[in-house]
Design a protein around this nucleic acid. Structure first.
Length: 216
DNA sequence: GAACCGATTGCCT
DNA sequence: GGCAATCGGTTCG
């Protein structure tokens, strides 16, 4: 079947998917779909096209480097938990905890292709008239803004029922459709550990925050 | 307590 | 290409 309908969501990915090695999860998330249902808002779906793996204690670029702190403790916990932090006092970044408890791995979701709820994303974007997809969800801060993700989402289990009074719910569904052309390259914006090939992109996506960074 | 910093973005020259 | 914005977390005294 060449023209299958890919609009139907694949199975929801659970603990078994996220408990694997951080880099395997980061790579396999490319082409999967992120579903976000903010409390009282409309459902949003985006195709994941850019991720970065952050290993645990031994990864100098990770918040988990050098042992747990109050902020990074969540990375040392169970996989499939949402880790959100504020960067530069301005932007939020969405991560999913990976690997077995104690390994402190996480995958940063860096870019999406909007598939559902685009008008709501544009509304959160502010006064810009006709933003391109890349301006909406191409970049970790941008995609959080588009989806309404902030610190209130920190600690939420992906796939769980929305807790009363909580920010909403969020989950990831398995890849459907053609196999993406996945490229690995250097991570963006990190001071130490940037030369490691821990960033994964769908090479054919127009929504990447930056082009693939080749490693020499 | 105070100082410093960052897994970013948008606007400036 | 440069750089300011802005604040929670971390570190240091």
């Amino acid at each position: 079947m060449e023209d299958r309908d890919h609009s139907e969501a694949g199975p929801v990915l659970g603990r078994a998917f996220f408990v694997r090695s951080t880099l395997a999860v980061a790579r396999d998330l490319i082409g999967c779909r992120l579903h976000v249902e903010p409390a009282g808002g409309e459902p949003l779906v985006g195709r994941i096209v850019e991720t970065e793996g952050y290993l645990g204690r031994e990864d100098p670029a990770s918040h988990a480097a050098g042992g747990p702190t109050p902020r990074s403790a969540i990375m040392y916990g169970e996989p499939a938990i949402v880790y959100v932090y504020l960067i530069y006092g301005l932007h939020h970044c969405l991560n999913l905890v990976t690997g077995p408890e104690g390994s402190a791995g996480a995958v940063l979701i860096r870019a999406l292709e909007p598939e559902r709820g685009r008008p709501a994303m544009v509304r959160r974007c502010g006064p810009a008239r006709r933003p391109a997809d890349r301006e909406l969800t191409g970049g970790p801060g941008r995609l959080c803004r588009a989806c309404g993700i902030d610190l209130a989402w920190n600690g939420l289990p992906a796939g769980a029922v929305a807790p009363p009074g909580g920010p909403g719910r969020l989950w990831v569904s398995a890849r459907r459709g053609p196999e993406p052309r996945i490229l690995a390259g250097g991570r963006i914006g990190v001071r130490r550990g940037g030369e490691l090939p821990y960033r994964f992109v769908d090479a054919d996506s127009p929504c990447l925050s930056r082009p693939p960074v080749p490693l020499r």
